[in-house]
């Protein structure tokens, strides 16, 4: 199992055009990333296409990744999640904004304080999600792993759009309070 430092190293070398490092990165991360594609898309064929897009993007954008104390897996998973959700939304014929830009920012430097908090977030996210009401954590999960929009959540929970937004924002504040403890 490759260590975090190995993965950072592979990404850094990819930025320099090192194809061997790209192979090593693929070997170390493709199974986890493919698992996430499958989880989001629920379709093997589409997940394969998504994973191809992901690694093409990783190769092209490796120079934008900065080693910053956050897990490099966060950067990779964010690319996987966003590309998969984009596909899912195309499939659902939803005219939503692309998430293209989002992962580019995943590598922006957080302060040292942010890094410390992020490290503790990792341990706490599961615990904090369980502190939310079942419906609240379910909605956050659906938004992240299934790309559900406010409109879809509003339909799902049968509440008006403004209400669902207020409700989810309250969940996020509660989640943040827990994560920051």
């Amino acid at each position: 199992m490759a260590e975090i430092a190995d993965i950072e190293n592979y990404i850094a070398k990819c930025a320099l055009g090192d194809r061997d490092a790209f192979s090593l990165l693929y070997a170390a991360t493709s199974a986890k990333l493919f698992g996430v594609c499958l989880r989001v898309l629920g379709d093997r064929h589409e997940a394969e296409d998504a994973l191809q897009d992901v690694f093409v993007k990783i190769w092209h954008n490796a120079d934008r990744y900065q080693i910053n104390g956050l897990s490099p897996m966060t950067w990779l998973i964010t690319i996987v999640r966003n590309l998969s959700i984009d596909r899912l939304r195309v499939r659902k014929r939803i005219q939503g904004a692309g998430l293209e830009a989002a992962e580019d920012l995943a590598s922006t430097d957080p302060s040292p304080e942010a890094m410390a908090i992020a490290a503790s977030d990792r341990r706490q996210i599961a615990a904090c999600m369980s502190e939310l009401d079942a419906g609240q954590s379910d909605a956050v999960r659906r938004a992240y792993l299934e790309g559900e929009t406010y409109q879809e959540l509003s339909t799902r929970y049968d509440v008006p759009l403004n209400t669902i937004r207020t409700w989810l924002r309250r969940s996020l504040i509660k989640l943040k309070e827990c994560l920051s403890r």
Binding site: K32, L70, T74, I77, A114, I117, A118, V140
Partner: peptide
């Protein structure tokens, strides 16, 4: 944003 990205990624 960085903190949320990390937290949400850990949902996987």
């Amino acid at each position: 944003y960085a903190k949320w990205t990390e937290s949400f990624a850990n949902l996987t």
